[in-house]
Design a protein around this nucleic acid. Structure first.
Length: 686
DNA sequence: CCCTCATGTCATGCC
DNA sequence: AAGGCATGACATGAG
C-alpha cells in the first residue's frame, strides 16, 4: 500500500472527503480534503492510497511519517494558509520524483492515479477503472467491496439516502505501519517545470488540458466568487434568476463545468457522516493558482488542505444560487471563507475521457443540483402543505369576510418600528415573503416558499408557473425595486435579522411548525387571503413589480377570477398603502417645515422689534440733540437792537442756498400750511 | 372609557 | 383608457 501524500496543505474548514473505490481486486482509496480557496496545486501530490501491493516507482518517494491520519479531518494549521516550514521544498520533491525516473509527474491526484494505473499495467488506467467502477457499481459506491462503499446509498445515489458511515471503514484501512510516500509537484508554476517529463506521456496533452481547465476554473472561481457576493445582496428573484440561468445553461449543454458546489450538492444528498468518508480527489481537477501560496504542516494530510466543515445542511444552504443562505457562523469554522470558492470546473473529457463516475456521482452535476433543488422544494412544499393544511373554502370565505385589514405590506420596517412589532415581527422569521416588511424578508421567504402560503410555483402544479416566468417575475421585481422607490425616507431596516429565516433546513420541523402557527397569526388579511387562495406570489411581489411584468405574470399563469381579483386588490391596496405612507410623511414634513417657518418668523419679529426700539432711542437722542442745538443757537442770536431772540416767536429756516434765516413763526406756520395744501392737491391729482 | 397616534383602506381627482 | 400617485376621510387597534 502506498501513499501519495500532500506535503503541504492549506488551512481551512473541515470538509473531509474520502473516496473509496473498489474494483476488481484493486482498491484505490483516495483521500482528499478540499480547501475552500483551493489553490491550483492543492491536488498536487494528493494522497493516494494504493492497497493491494500494487507498487509503482512513481510513488516510492520520500515518506513523511509525520503525515497525519488518513481520512480524518484535522485541525487547521494555526497560520492558515502559510506554508509549513517543516514541509519539504517543492524542488526537492520534484527532484526525487525525477530521480526515480517517473515518466509522469502526478500533477493531480488523477494524474497520480493514471501514473499508477499505467505503471501497474492496468491497461487504460484509471479511465477504465473508473469507467468500470461506475458501470459495475450500479448502486454507486455501495457496490464497492469495502464496507465503506456498502454503507453508501445505493440506487445511483438517492440524495436522501440513509446515513452511512464510510469514514469508519475508511479508517480501518489506515494503519500507522503503512508505508507513506509523498509526492509533490509544483503545480501552477511548477507544472511548466515538469513539462518535459509530461511530454513523454500522454500527460503532455493532459497537462495542456489541465492548464486550460485550470484557467477555466480560475475564471469560474472568480465568477462564482463574484456571483456569491452579488447574490448575497441580491433579492431572491435575482438569485433565482441566476439559478435559472444556470439551469438553462445546463440544459442547453453550454456549460459543461463541474463545480465543487455540485459535488457538495451531491454529497449533501448523502448522509452527513458520509461526507467524511468520500474523497473528491478523482473528480476535482487542480484549481487556479492565484491563491496558491498556502503551505501547511506536513502533518496535515490532504484532509486539511481542503478542509471545510460542511455538512448536509450547509451544502444545501450554500448552494450556488444562494437560494438557501444561512448564517454560516455557527457551524462553519471559517465563516469568512466563501464556500463557492470551492468551485472548479470539470471537463468531462479531462482528465478522464470517457470516465463515468455515475456510479458515484452523476454525469452531469447540474442535473444533480437541479434535481436536488427540486427535491428540496418538493420537500419544503410538502412540509408547507402539511403544516398549513390544504385549501379550505370555508377558510377562504372567512378570510374574505374578515373585518380587519392589514395587507401586510408593512412599511414599518422602514418608517417605524411599531408596526414591525405589531404584525410582522414573527413572520419575518418564518414566512416573511407574504408581507414585505423588508426586502430581505420577502427575499428569504420567497426563497423557501416562493409564494404566499408556502406554495412554490412549479410546472404542472396548481398554477402553470415555470421557472422562467418566476425568474422573469423576480427580475422585474428587482428592477422595479430600483426604479419604483418613491418612498419617503424609507430605509431598509432589520434585514439582517431575517437571516434567521434561512435556517429552515437545519431546524426541526417542530420548530418550523410552531413558527408557522405564529406566522399565521401574524399574517395580514391579504396575506391570509392570498395564502388561502394559494396565490403563487408574495404580496410584496404583487405590489412591487412593474405593471408590465405584473400583467405578463398574470397572463402566464392560470389564475382563477377570484385569484386575479385578489391579486389586483392586493396590488391596489399595497400601492395605496405606500402612497398613504408617503403622503403622511410629506404632510408631516410640511407641518414640520411650517413649524420651523413659524419659529423663524417669530425670531425675526423679535429682532425687528428690538431694532425698532433701538431706532426710537436713536431718534429721541437725535431729537434731543437738535432741541439743544436749537436753543443754543437762539441763545446766541440778537436782534437789531441787541436784544435776545425769543425762540417762541421766531424759528430758524434753512434756505435752498444754504443760508439760515430767522423767520417769525407765523410766517413759518402759514408757509407750512400752504405747502401741505399743495402737497395734498398733488396727491389728490395723482 | 376616552383620547391620541399610527396605520390601513376607500373614494376621488389629477397626471 | 389604464395605471399610478396624492390626499381627504374614515376605520381600527394599541398604548
Amino acid at each position: 500500500m502506498k501513499y501519495l501524500k500532500p506535503w503541504w496543505s492549506d488551512g481551512g474548514g473541515l470538509l473531509h472527503l474520502t473516496i473509496l473505490l473498489s474494483l476488481a481486486g484493486l482498491r484505490v482509496d483516495l483521500d482528499l480534503d478540499l480547501y475552500l480557496l483551493l489553490p491550483p496545486r492543492t491536488l498536487l501530490g494528493d494522497e493516494l492510497l494504493l492497497p493491494g501491493g500494487s507498487t509503482s516507482p512513481a510513488y516510492a518517494l520520500s515518506p513523511f511519517p509525520a503525515l497525519g491520519g488518513w481520512g480524518r479531518a484535522e485541525p487547521l494549521h494555526p497560520k492558515g494558509r502559510e506554508r509549513d516550514p517543516a514541509a519539504p521544498p517543492e524542488g526537492q520533491l520534484l527532484r526525487e520524483i525525477r530521480a526515480l525516473g517517473v515518466p509522469f509527474i502526478p500533477r493531480t491526484r488523477v494524474d497520480a492515479w493514471l501514473v499508477h494505473s499505467v505503471a501497474a499495467g492496468d491497461g487504460d488506467g484509471a479511465h477504465a477503472l473508473l469507467g468500470a467502477a461506475a458501470a459495475s457499481s450500479a448502486g454507486g459506491v455501495g457496490a464497492s467491496v469495502d464496507g465503506v462503499s456498502q454503507a453508501a446509498p445505493g440506487g445511483g445515489g438517492d440524495p436522501r439516502a440513509a446515513p452511512s458511515s464510510p469514514l469508519a471503514a475508511g479508517e480501518e484501512e489506515k494503519t500507522p505501519a503503512e508505508p507513506t510516500a509523498q509526492v509533490s509537484d509544483a503545480g501552477g508554476h511548477a507544472s511548466e517545470e515538469n513539462e518535459g517529463l509530461r511530454t513523454a506521456e500522454r500527460g503532455s496533452q493532459h497537462g495542456e488540458n489541465e492548464r486550460r481547465a485550470s484557467a477555466q476554473k480560475e475564471k469560474s472561481l472568480q465568477q462564482k466568487t463574484e456571483d456569491e457576493k452579488k447574490t448575497a445582496e441580491r433579492p431572491a428573484w435575482e438569485a433565482e434568476k441566476t439559478a435559472e440561468s444556470r439551469n438553462e445553461r445546463h440544459q442547453n449543454g453550454t456549460e459543461t463545468s463541474f463545480s465543487l458546489e455540485d459535488l457538495f450538492q451531491l454529497l449533501s444528498s448523502q448522509p452527513e457522516n458520509l461526507l467524511e468518508g468520500i474523497s473528491l480527489g478523482d473528480i476535482i481537477p487542480p484549481l487556479p493558482g492565484s491563491i496558491n501560496d498556502g503551505m501547511n504542516s506536513p502533518t496535515h494530510n490532504f484532509s486539511q488542505a481542503i478542509s471545510q466543515d460542511v455538512n448536509l445542511h450547509e451544502a444545501m444552504l450554500l448552494c450556488p444560487d444562494n437560494v438557501f443562505r444561512s448564517d454560516p457562523a455557527p457551524r462553519i469554522s471559517q465563516p469568512q471563507e466563501p464556500f463557492l470558492q470551492l468551485n472548479s470546473t470539470f471537463n468531462p473529457e479531462q482528465p478522464f475521457p470517457g470516465t463515468n463516475l455515475t456510479g458515484f456521482l452523476p454525469l452531469d452535476s447540474q442535473d444533480l443540483l437541479y434535481d436536488l433543488d427540486i427535491n428540496i422544494f418538493d420537500e419544503i412544499n410538502l412540509m408547507s402543505l402539511a403544516t398549513e393544511g390544504s385549501f379550505d373554502p370555508m377558510e377562504v370565505s372567512q378570510l374574505f369576510e374578515e373585518p380587519d385589514s392589514d395587507s401586510g405590506l408593512s412599511l414599518n420596517s422602514s418608517l417605524s418600528s411599531t408596526s414591525v412589532t405589531k404584525s410582522n415581527s414573527s413572520h419575518s422569521i418564518c414566512e416573511g415573503a407574504i408581507g414585505y416588511s423588508s426586502d430581505l424578508e420577502s427575499l428569504s421567504q420567497h426563497d423557501f416558499e416562493g409564494a404566499v402560503g408556502g406554495y412554490h410555483a412549479e410546472p404542472s402544479k396548481l398554477c402553470h408557473t415555470d421557472q422562467r416566468s418566476v425568474s422573469h417575475f423576480h427580475e422585474a421585481l428587482a428592477f422595479q425595486h430600483i426604479l419604483h422607490n418613491h418612498t419617503y425616507h424609507i430605509q431598509p431596516s432589520a434585514p439582517e435579522s431575517n437571516s434567521q429565516s434561512f435556517s429552515w433546513p437545519g431546524k426541526s420541523q417542530k420548530i418550523r411548525s410552531r413558527c408557522h402557527n405564529d406566522t399565521d397569526r401574524n399574517l395580514s388579511r391579504d396575506e391570509r387571503r392570498a395564502k388561502a387562495l394559494h396565490i403563487p406570489f408574495s404580496v410584496d411581489e404583487i405590489v412591487r413589480m412593474p405593471v408590465e411584468s405584473f400583467n405578463g405574470m398574470l397572463s402566464r399563469h392560470y389564475l382563477t377570477d377570484l385569484q386575479l381579483s385578489l391579486i389586483r386588490d392586493i396590488r391596489r391596496r399595497g400601492k395605496n398603502k405606500v402612497a398613504a405612507q408617503n403622503c403622511r410623511k410629506r404632510k408631516l414634513d410640511v407641518l414640520l417645515n411650517l413649524e420651523d417657518d413659524v419659529c423663524n418668523l417669530q425670531a425675526k419679529k423679535e429682532t425687528l422689534k428690538r431694532e425698532r426700539i433701538q431706532c426710537h432711542k436713536a431718534i429721541n437722542i437725535m431729537r434731543q440733540k437738535l432741541h439743544d442745538l436749537y436753543h443754543d443757537v437762539f441763545s446766541r442770536l440778537r436782534d437789531d437792537e441787541g436784544r435776545p431772540v425769543n425762540p417762541s416767536q421766531y424759528a430758524l429756516q434753512c434756505s435752498q442756498d444754504g443760508s439760515v434765516l430767522i423767520v417769525p413763526k407765523e410766517l413759518v406756520t402759514s408757509g407750512h400750511k400752504k405747502e401741505n395744501e399743495k402737497g395734498k392737491r398733488k396727491r389728490e391729482k395723482n
